[in-house]
Simulated assay, not measured.
Amino acid sequence: MRGREVGRGPDGSLRPVVMAIVNRTTDSFYAPARLPDDDAALAAAHRAWSDGAQIVDVGGVRAGVGPEVSAAEEIDRVVPFVRRVREQVPDLLVSVDTWRASVAQAAVDAGADLINDTWAGHDPGLVEVAGAAGVGVVCSHTGGATPRTDPYRVEYPWGATGHAGAGRDGADARSGVDPRDGVLDDVLTTLRTSAARAVACGVPARSVLVDPTHDFGKNTWHSLHLLRRTAELARLGYPLLMALSRKDFVGETLGLPPDERLEGTLAATALAAWMGASVFRAHDVGATRRVLDMVAAVRDDAPPHGALRGLG
């Protein structure tokens, strides 16, 4: 992004990247991520860098239902902070979580490296801003949901095509078709189309990330199925972002509130990393970094930090 590479370990190996979450809001679903105070938010960015994050994702509006936040107010919450991070933690890539082209433009002008378009191109001008500036963009999937709405009785057609790995848990082993793959088919089609448009608008292909966007326009069954189909998503050929941290599908699976969802999040993170996801949006940077390093070593993608046992 802007000529800077992330995800390269000290030994030259490629490793998954942690994207730390800093929300400049008072109403985010996970209370510790609410950082409207400038100094507290900046301290969180410094801490994220020291804990192993290479990207910080800055949000100015709660994703879910809540009080209206104008574009001007969103810019006021986000843009001055982007400038401060750019000045004080220059090696940390800055992402801005917004669906508005006007906010994206102001953030890019302030030094943002990546625009996280969580609401799947709701403002078609946003990707054009990213392309004109040559910054990265996250292409997401919401099943057609509009910004700041919660899913309600959302449905996807039965899966119609076979995918690698079909044949378990309800799949037809003879045809290779899992009827639950309808959501996967929709996500793959949407992300493939959105990524192609981003490249056509001028975003470098290596700076296009794709995100199945768990919970957005999906119920818990959909999100779980997308997690088990991570390998198919990774085959799109773009860096695959997983925003799993403390989300509702984790909470509903385990019957836990946001502040007790760390273990479930890390289990999902390990599975997604094993199957090829490469960027992880996380509240808990240090724990996520350690999980990803362990998975990388088991996959033989990176060496252990030290391997002395039995050698002395």
Rank of each mutant, 00 (worst) to 15 (best):
R2W: 05
G7F: 12
D11A: 13
D11Y: 01
G12L: 08
V17I: 14
A20L: 14
D27M: 04
D27K: 07
A44H: 04
H46V: 14
I55E: 12
V56W: 12
V56E: 09
V58D: 09
G60Y: 00
A63H: 11
G66M: 06
E68H: 07
E74K: 10
I75T: 14
I75Q: 15
R84S: 14
R86N: 12
R86W: 06
R86Q: 09
E87G: 03
L92W: 03
V103C: 09
Q105D: 15
A110Q: 12
D113T: 01
H122Q: 01
P124Y: 00
G134T: 10
G136S: 03
S140E: 05
H141V: 09
T146H: 00
P147Q: 02
T149M: 03
P151F: 00
Y152L: 15
Y152I: 15
V154H: 02
T161Y: 07
G167F: 08
G167P: 03
A171V: 01
V177R: 14
D181V: 11
L191P: 05
L191F: 04
A195L: 13
R197S: 11
V203Q: 07
P204D: 03
V208M: 07
L209T: 10
T213L: 09
D215T: 09
H222T: 08
H225G: 04
L227K: 07
R228N: 07
R246C: 04
V250Q: 02
L254V: 02
L256C: 04
P258C: 08
E260T: 02
R261T: 02
A268Q: 10
A270E: 05
S278R: 11
R281C: 11
V285E: 12
V285G: 13
D301T: 13
A302S: 14
P304T: 08
G306V: 14
G310V: 04
G310D: 08
